[in-house]
Amino acid sequence: MSSQAAASFRLVGGRVLGAVVTMWVTTIVVFSALYLVPGDPLSVLLRGRKPTPELVEMMRAQYQLDLPFLERYWNWFTGILHGDFGYSIQYQQDVGELLAGRMPTTVWLVVYTAILILIGGTALGIASAVRGGRTDGAILVATSAMSALPAFVAALVLLFVFAGLLGWFPSFGAGGPDVASRIVHLTLPAVALAISYAGLMARITRSALRAELGSDHVEAARLRGLGGIHLFRHHVARNATVPVLTYSGILVAGLLVTSQLVESVFGLNGIGSLVVSSVKNLDLAVVQAVTLLVVAVFVLTNLVVDLVTPMIDVRLRQRKAA
């Protein structure tokens, strides 16, 4: 028993260490990328701006261009550990505060979208795998069409039909502060963002369920006379959850990135539109911070999925421990 505890401790420790190393390497990549650009970093940072002496001085101070590379990295890195992500030239504001102010809209949008994907995608996948036949065929066509529809195209179509022609939903802004207003404002953006991911989710659910439905242990359960909901819940669904969860881990970080597409269509004031305006205005500190944020979300969600899946499927635990 204690050896098993030690094994799972080692498993958890290994995963956490892996996540920490990935994050650390990311900070190195994100920091040093500036020095890959040909030319003097100062001229890269000043590109397209009038190099007034004050601005030059500010850039030198913010990016510490007079210090040696390693010392500069170390100061930046320890700053981030203390929550200091630098200063935004465009907004004349601390990047951390700026991000915190933009966060609520994006979190609402991503959570709303993720719920739509989880419910819609798995429902379609389950219907497709369980009913089979013509239902399966129709859902397959629908989901492949869905997964080929880029979020920004979906956003434009929904904007035109449901906000323009029918006038059912507002076309601009994130709403708030009360929940009802947020949901009304974010419905079209969330649906636009969800469509292609829900198509993929449905396909993953379908193939996971079909693999389980055709397996020996389900056949054996059927021969014992089991069927219906009990068979599905206890012998099929549990194992099929693993690929769905694995995909969900990648999903959240992906949503965070693609949210900028629908945010720009619906005039939402979130992280995504912040990145776009920061890139246009060469506000590198903001872009670096958001890149770190996205990778951190990716690493964390994957860590959680990696730790949760062995609890669902015991075989994974044994394989990983061995």
């Binding site: 500036l34 990135v257 890139v279």
Partner: peptide, 11 residues
């Protein structure tokens, strides 16, 4: 998309 946006921010 993130890698592309980051590349545009630099280059």
């Amino acid at each position: 998309l993130l890698a592309a946006v980051f590349a545009v921010a630099l280059f």
